[in-house]
């Protein structure tokens, strides 16, 4: 069927703002950053094309160690988030009465009405040496003197998991909602134990939800700045802090831009490997 001319025009009219937005806010800055990342100063102080910014990443152990650490912690965070979110999603979709479902979703959503900064400060008030938890532990005689619970990797991961929960639970809920109860019952009827039902029926069914949730959480955690900065250890950097340092502290925008691109490339690579390992295609996950 031929599309009438006028409807084609309407189509472009609606698409134009989106295209403008994409061009102005995403494509142009990235081109600028890309150019910047390949520029440097030669011995005479003149600007030239160079690969030095990228070379620095691979030759200076501090840089790629930071990246490696960030990536590993992001993967661990994603994994923990998934392990916590799966039972939560199952409980909300399959166990709770329908009337309570909405209320439970609201409770999950509520913390996200305040900004991340406020949420992190909330944790700090609870966990710091003079914080609420220490106060009560000492009062009830469980501790002799307050201990510092902030500024270590475990606390940081906990903070990241907390920040990411919602982004894992929501895709898992929508995946779980499309699971027909009778499939679970059929598996049970055919002699499966509960473990087998989880492995053979529920997890394979939820695979697209798991993957999209994991990608979102992984990317958000990898690109997070606030939580690792405020809750993490002082002598262990997150890669985004490395980028921040280049831009703000060292005022080396060229190096910062190169790190930014490396973060994009390497995280895409990790996701690609993840998809390959679980034998999925990005298109299937997105749909």
């Amino acid at each position: 069927m031929a599309v009438p001319r006028s409807s084609k025009m309407v189509f472009w009219m609606f698409l134009a703002p989106v295209l403008c937005w994409l061009l102005l806010l995403i494509v142009l800055p990235h081109i600028d950053l890309l150019v910047m990342s390949f520029s440097g100063e030669n011995d005479l102080g003149k600007s030239t094309w160079t690969l030095q910014n990228y070379r620095n990443f691979f030759t200076e152990p501090i840089y790629w160690n930071t990246f490696l650490r960030t990536a590993v912690f992001s993967i661990i965070t994603t994994l923990i988030t998934f392990l916590l979110a799966m039972p939560v999603a199952f409980y909300i979709v399959k166990v709770v009465r329908p009337r309570l479902q909405g209320a439970m979703l609201m409770m999950l959503l509520l913390p996200f009405w305040v900004s991340e900064l406020v949420r992190v400060y909330g944790w700090m008030i609870l966990l710091r040496e003079s914080g609420v938890i220490n106060h009560f532990l000492v009062k009830f005689g469980l501790l002799e003197r307050p201990i510092e619970m902030l500024y270590n990797d475990a606390t940081m991961i906990m903070g990241l998991v907390y920040t990411s929960m919602l982004f894992m639970v929501v895709p898992l809920i929508s995946a779980m909602e499309s699971l027909d109860d009778s499939l679970v019952e059929a598996a049970y009827d055919l002699g499966s134990s509960k473990t087998v039902i989880w492995w053979k029926i529920i997890l394979p069914h939820c695979k697209p939800g798991i993957t999209s949730g994991s990608i979102v959480v992984f990317m958000l955690v990898l690109g997070n700045y606030l939580t690792p900065n405020l809750m993490g250890g002082k002598n262990s950097l997150w890669f985004t802090e490395q980028i921040y340092n280049q831009f703000i502290a060292s005022f080396n925008w060229n190096q910062g831009a190169a790190f930014g691109f490396l973060l994009l490339l390497l995280s895409s690579l990790i996701i690609w490997i993840g998809l390959k390992l679980s034998r999925q295609k990005l298109g299937e996950v997105a749909s």
Binding site: D180, S182, L183, A186, S192
Partner: peptide
């Protein structure tokens, strides 16, 4: 159900 010597063909079949 997984221990009973009966099997059920579901109303909507429930094939995996």
């Amino acid at each position: 159900p997984n221990q009973r010597p009966v099997n059920l063909v579901f109303q909507h079949l429930a094939l995996f």
